[in-house]
Write a protein that binds this DNA or RNA. Structure first.
Length: 111
DNA sequence: GGAGTGACGCGGC
DNA sequence: AGCCGCGCCACTC
């Protein structure tokens, strides 16, 4: 049987894949949507593994303040910002402008 | 087997 | 108001 952690990772990927273009979400929101608001760190870890995938728009995932914390993990440090701007999101100093306006809330599987 | 790290979040000082 | 530390979960050395 699959390990729980593995299933958690899979959920994260599935959720991130549901993020529409021009929208962004936070690690905490994803973790909370999965029923583990304290596992926000694990979400970030999952995204690190998402590098082997290509269906996971990790560039649409930022931290709770809308800062591109994981931009350094992309092919290029500016790739994340470029992708977001391409989708219509304005980035200022590695920070998303009108973050709440572009924030996308994932469907809560809990209820 | 223990300690440290990390794409986070919140609270305390 | 900003700066510092702790908690939490998973993974690696």
């Amino acid at each position: 049987m699959s390990s729980k952690s593995e299933d958690f990772f899979k959920k994260v990927y599935a959720l991130v894949r549901l993020i529409p273009e021009g929208k962004v979400t936070t690690y905490g929101e994803i973790a909370k949507a999965l029923g583990a608001p304290k596992s926000s760190r694990v979400v970030g870890y999952a995204m690190n593994n998402s590098h082997q995938l290509d269906d996971v728009p990790a560039h649409r995932v930022v931290n709770r303040i809308g800062v591109l914390t994981g931009k350094h993990h992309f092919s290029s440090s500016d790739a994340m910002q470029q992708l977001l701007e391409e989708e219509g999101i304005s980035i200022k100093n590695d920070q998303v402008e009108n973050f709440e306006q572009h924030l996308w809330k994932p469907p809560q599987t809990d209820k």
